[in-house]
Every structure is written in C-alpha cells, then in structure tokens.
Design a binder for these strands. Structure first.
Lengths: 209, 209
DNA sequence: CACAAATTCGAACAGTGTTCAAGTTTGGAG
DNA sequence: CTCCAAACTTGAACACTGTTCGAATTTGTG
C-alpha cells in the first residue's frame, strides 16, 4: 500500500486550499460577490475550474470559508478595541463603534456578511450546519459588546437586547452608507452611529447606577 | 400608412405589461428573487422567453417595476396609518411603526427592497435613471414620518435625521427578523422597534416642549 | 521500480439572461 | 375588401454560469 497522507502532505494540501481562498478573496473584491465566477477564481489560482471541486464542495463552500475568516477578523477588531479602552462605559462605546467601523471601512467584508443574511449563494445554499457555524462566529464577534454592557452595569438579558439593537442600528446605517444611499439624506453614518451609541450608554449607566 | 397606435391599442399593450408583471410577482414570491428565472416568468405569463423583451428591456427592468409598485404600496400603508392616528406624537409613532410592520408582514416586499440596496440584479444593473426613480419612491414613502416629526415639534433637519435613524433601525431589525436570525438572541423584533420608536418620540417631544 | 492514492483536467450537462432574424397577427388607410 | 406597415411573438442560437464525471497525470512511499 502507498501509505496514508503524511503530515507534510496534509500541510501542502491545506496550503493549496488557502491559495484558492486567497484567489477567491481577490476575485470577490474585484468583481463583487455576485459577479465573481468560479472560473475566474480557478484561473486566478492557476487551476482548471473542475480542480476546485477536489478541495471544496461548491462555490458556496468557498464563500463560507472566506466569510468565516472575515468574521474572525471582525472578532479580533472588536476585541482589540475593548482591550484598549479604559473604564466600563468607554469599553461599551468602543466595542459598539468598533463593530460599526469595521464594516464601514471594509465594504468587502460587509458584502460577505450581507450574503450570509440573504441566505448565501445559490443554488445549494449553505447547509444548516455551516449556517450555524457562521451564526456562532458572528455571535462570538459581538460578545464583547454584551460583556462590556454587563460590566457597565446591565443585566445579562438587557445586555443582549442592547446587542440586538446595536447590531440592527449599525447594520441599517451601513446599508445606507455602503450603497451610497445615505446621501438621500443629509447625514453622516458615523455620526448617526455615535449618537445612537452615546445615547444608549448614557441611558444604561444612568439606569444602573 | 397604417396609422399610429390608437388609444385602445395602447391600453391593450399596457394590459399585457401588467400580466407579465403579475406573473413576475408570483414567481418572485414562489421561487425567491434570485431563484426566479426569466423563463419561469414567461411561461407563467403564457409567453415565450424572448417575448418579454418586447415589453421590457431586461429582467432587471421587470424587477424595477415590481419594486416600484411595492414602494407605492408602502407609501399608501404609511400614509393611511398617519391619517388614522390622533395627535402629533401618536402620528409619528404610527408612521414609524407602519413602515416597520409593512415589511415585517410582507417578506416578499422586503426582499424586493433589499435587492434595491444590493444594487439590483445582474448583469446590467438598473441604470442611474431608474435607480434615482426608486430612490424618490422610497423617500416619498418615508416622508410622512418626517412630516409627523415636524408636526410634533422637531426642526426639519432633526426630522430628517430621525427618518434616517428610524429607517436604519427598522431595516436592521427586519434583516434579523426576516432571516430568522433574531432567534440568535432572545428578542422580539416588533418589541425592539416599539421600544426604539417610543424612546425617540419621548425624547423629541420632551426636547421640543 | 511499481503501484496506489492524491490530484488535476477536458469535456460535457443543464441552467441562466439575452439577441436576432424570421415569422405571425392586427388594424386602419385606400 | 385588400393591402401593407406596424405591432407582436417565436425558435434557435450565443455566451455565460455552477457542477459532474471519467480519464489522465502527478506524487510519495513500500
């Protein structure tokens, strides 16, 4: 028998996966999520289209893995912001604004995230399992906001409601900002987010005094 | 010469357009926006695929017209809610909640709206002209909220900021609600929206006393 | 070297939106 | 009623998509 995969062999295979994912990230960024074709990704990675199917189940699977990386980066970003802020109220503020600004400054990642919320790419759709994985990754990235709220004096359930509200408000503003439709109104998305977060922090710290 | 289109002829032609649009609405609702194929729409309308191109420029144009109708319905809904409410503060509340609930209760329309914000369908994308048309239709539907805010004592610019915030908050909650991801958290989207609107109305009426 | 496992590819399939030239239907002018 | 142009419809094709499959190639070790 010709031996099972050696450790080294497995590392090489993993490396090839990341090469494909890098190519996918590039093509996603260049052509947009919907415009990105599997053939374009394959070409950029130096493969024939069919070769990708040895490393990934589908185009959707590639998308899911790129998104997972994006959510991990979001988590890092929020976590770092919290660790650098001084005081409970300031940490809460920082966490919420970090979430907003991550997506404000990285439109590509926002696109990836929206796709998750629209059910991903077709036709297969990401399976129940992968979907919940991504849910958890998003929840993990948002955790620091809830933690900071608790630290600032909120109950656990109030903290979670605040995360929902913050997520919703930020997402809506990002939608307006990212699509250029914020100009429908004479407003700055960043300022609106700061106003919202400031208001909530004041209310929370006042109520829990 | 064989004469220009008579009035009657034009009415018949318009009727055919609406038949296609009705078919499109059905297929959109049944197969989802992305899953809906032009061939399916044509078949449901009793046409060959190519025939649609006599009445519409593209699949995108069909989508845009269906969306326009949806936005008109939204405007009616919000307008009616305002006209039925008593008192400035109550009118403001009613307008904002009507906007939210229209989309909470009509997921299909929400889908249509999100497509507008994601740049519409590919490949052509709806042109600058059509895009601004739809922008105006959306702005018109939101106008009653701003009017009610002014009536309740806000300045025009504050009223518009409130529209931005309300739109953002509602959109974010709807995104969570519509994708079932609100269950990530233990919260009701409708309650969160009521809490937000109530808070804003109180703040506005208190500040403008 | 030899052989099996891991990997890659060309070709094909069913599907998409769209175009085009060729047809059919229609309704009013002569 | 006839005729003809305008309005309308269509089948076939095009370029593209994600995906599948069998055959070919590369790879690493016994």
């Amino acid at each position: 028998m010709a031996a099972r995969r050696s450790e080294r062999q497995q590392a090489v295979s993993e490396h090839k996966r990341t090469l494909i994912l890098d190519a996918a990230r590039d093509v996603f960024a260049q052509d947009g999520l919907e415009g990105a074709s599997l053939r374009a990704i394959a070409m950029r990675a130096g493969y024939a289209p069919a070769a990708l199917y040895f490393h990934f189940d589908s185009k959707e699977a590639i998308y899911a893995e790129v998104l997972r990386g994006s959510l991990a980066a979001l988590g890092d970003h929020v976590g770092r912001a919290v660790s650098e802020a001084a005081g409970p109220a300031e940490r809460l503020r920082a966490a919420a604004m970090a979430f907003f600004r991550f997506y404000a400054e990285n439109p590509g990642d926002l696109d990836l995230g929206f796709y998750l919320f629209r059910g991903g790419m077709k036709p297969k759709g990401l399976g129940r399992e992968r979907d919940e994985d991504l849910n958890k990754a998003l929840a993990a990235a948002l955790n620091p906001i809830a933690d900071a709220a608790v630290e600032a004096g909120a109950s656990r359930s109030d903290a979670e409601l605040l995360v929902v509200d913050t997520f919703a408000h930020a997402t809506g503003l990002l939608l307006l900002l990212h699509t250029g439709r914020i100009r429908m109104f004479d407003a700055s998305a960043d300022e609106r987010m700061e106003a919202y977060v400031g208001e909530r922090v004041v209310r929370l710290t006042a109520g829990a005094k």
